[in-house]
């Protein structure tokens, strides 16, 4: 069965979503990621969606779930690299991804996670304040 690879980078996990995900793959990712957060004692998760050409409400919900579950497991989630057309469409769709933090690219996302860890708390930027 195909899986989306999860990379470990120091205390963070990096997931780069490259494919047009079908629903089962998305559910598997959710399971794998929560497992890895616990196993690797990860403090943050970066979800790179710069390759995704669309995000529909299903994927949006999955991202929201991952963020919420990570928070329970004491890890921050940052979604990075959302394309402008995808962002415009999500807003029109009515999906603001509340509680999900965002960054322009992996580097900036990493920076955000680090500064948030250093402050020892939740950062200030939520996607859907």
């Amino acid at each position: 069965m195909e899986r989306i690879p999860i990379l470990k980078m120091n205390e963070f996990l990096l997931v780069s979503i490259q494919v047009d995900m079908h629903d089962r793959l998305a559910m598997t990712l959710q399971d794998d990621l929560t497992d890895r957060i616990v196993r690797d004692r990860a403090r943050g998760v970066l979800i790179d969606i710069s390759s995704l050409e669309i995000v529909d409400s299903f994927i949006g919900r999955m991202i929201g779930n991952i963020a919420a579950m990570s928070r329970v497991l004491d890890a921050e989630t940052v979604v990075v690299g959302m394309r402008p057309a995808v962002a415009i469409t999500l807003v029109e769709l009515g999906l603001a991804l509340p509680g999900v933090r965002t960054s322009l690219n992996v580097d900036k996302g990493m920076e955000l996670l680090r500064s948030s860890l250093a402050r020892g708390g939740n950062g200030h930027r939520d996607a859907g304040r």
């Binding site: 669309i54 299903f58 415009i88 469409t89 769709l93």
Partner: peptide
């Protein structure tokens, strides 16, 4: 255009 494409594809997915 790209935004129009993305909108109709997303609607189709829903």
């Amino acid at each position: 255009n790209l935004v129009e494409q993305t909108k109709i594809v997303t609607a189709a997915s829903e």
